[in-house]
Amino acid sequence: MTPPPPLGRPRNKDGPAFDPALDDTALAAARDALARGRWADARQLLARTGDDWDRRGHRLVALGRPPTAAAWAREWQLAEPDSPDAAALLAFATVFRALGGKDAPDAARALCLAAGRMAPRDPTPWLGALVLARRTGTDDERVRAFDQVRARHRDHHHAHHLMAACLAEHQDGDRDDPLHEVYDFAAWAAEQAPADSPLAVLPVVAHAERYRVLARAGLEPGDPARSGHWRTRRARQVMKSAFDWWLEWDVDEDAADAPDTAGSSHPRRKVDLNFLAHAKLHEGRTAEAAALLTRIGPHATPAPWSYPGQDPGAAFRAARRAALGAG
């Protein structure tokens, strides 16, 4: 899914700076009010969020980032010492202070654990512990925090992305390893996720995270957009991951032939089978593509992408002729 546009567009030499609130206007308003000491707005926002765990995690991350968040979260907790929301906000604010060198990591970790005890079903305090452990903890601490998040919400979007980043940062040797553990983790997570989960794209994220690490180590060009290397080998790796997990993911014969539901985002719709057919064309699996095109019928359209050196139109026409001949 394409990220939403930033609320503000400050620019610097490194490119645009995105607002952590993204397009959540209610969150941006509560964060700005919190900066002025009005913690009641954050209180109302978190109460409305309820147990939408992915949204709650995003909102607490954004609310906890500003430098003044800890002071106002502490004031809120003094007023409402039994509030799990106040405890969670103070934990996140202290995590970010610890990452900035202004508080001890042990203090931030203790606050995350305390917030977790106040709301045992909530994965969000453990998300705070994972944010902290990524920079200050051991591998065991990172895995434990991730496991605790997943035990409470197994498809937690942010936690899976954080864990992919943590694993991608393990660098042995002076080159990329196609069997790197981050790729196995991303494939496993995508397999485990339900059929409409955004975690299907995690294998693509794994490639992007590995590229970030390799570029930082000087093992890949710093600007992939200007690199022919990116547009060939690395681009094919990323696109193949997208084909394998976004398009081919969890398609079975019975569900694929079921009547389409208007407005459905399910990957078994005919349009997604059409994408899958074209992915197979680009991989040279013409017979499989022809079989899919036969099932899809007149819905099939020319491919919206291509690999370097391949003519998607010619491949499509050849498979279409084979499909019609087989029929």
Rank of each mutant, 00 (worst) to 15 (best):
258 A>I: 10
92 F>G: 00
210 R>E: 11
56 R>G: 01
290 A>I: 05
281 L>P: 03
238 V>N: 05
279 A>I: 04
325 G>A: 08
226 R>E: 14
12 N>P: 00
60 L>R: 00
199 L>S: 04
308 P>W: 04
35 A>T: 09
239 M>W: 06
84 P>H: 08
37 G>A: 07
164 A>P: 02
252 D>K: 10
78 L>Y: 05
95 V>Y: 05
167 L>Y: 07
187 A>F: 04
210 R>Q: 13
217 A>E: 13
116 G>E: 12
94 T>Y: 00
127 L>T: 11
322 A>Q: 15
41 D>T: 15
132 L>F: 02
135 R>T: 08
160 H>C: 13
185 F>K: 02
172 D>S: 14
139 D>T: 11
196 D>M: 11
187 A>T: 06
313 G>E: 14
160 H>G: 08
40 A>L: 15
288 E>S: 05
61 V>W: 10
58 H>A: 09
15 G>L: 04
32 D>L: 12
22 L>P: 00
149 V>S: 04
173 G>E: 10
289 A>I: 06
86 A>Y: 02
65 R>C: 01
132 L>K: 03
101 G>W: 01
232 T>Q: 12
144 R>D: 15
263 G>Q: 12
326 A>Y: 05
167 L>T: 08
128 G>K: 07
22 L>W: 09
10 P>R: 15
318 A>N: 12
80 E>D: 14
206 A>Y: 05
75 E>A: 15
223 D>N: 14
319 A>C: 02
78 L>K: 13
243 F>I: 08
263 G>W: 10
86 A>T: 03
232 T>I: 06
159 A>K: 00
171 Q>H: 13
142 R>A: 10
302 P>L: 13
145 A>D: 06
123 P>A: 12
123 P>S: 12
247 L>D: 06
155 D>L: 08
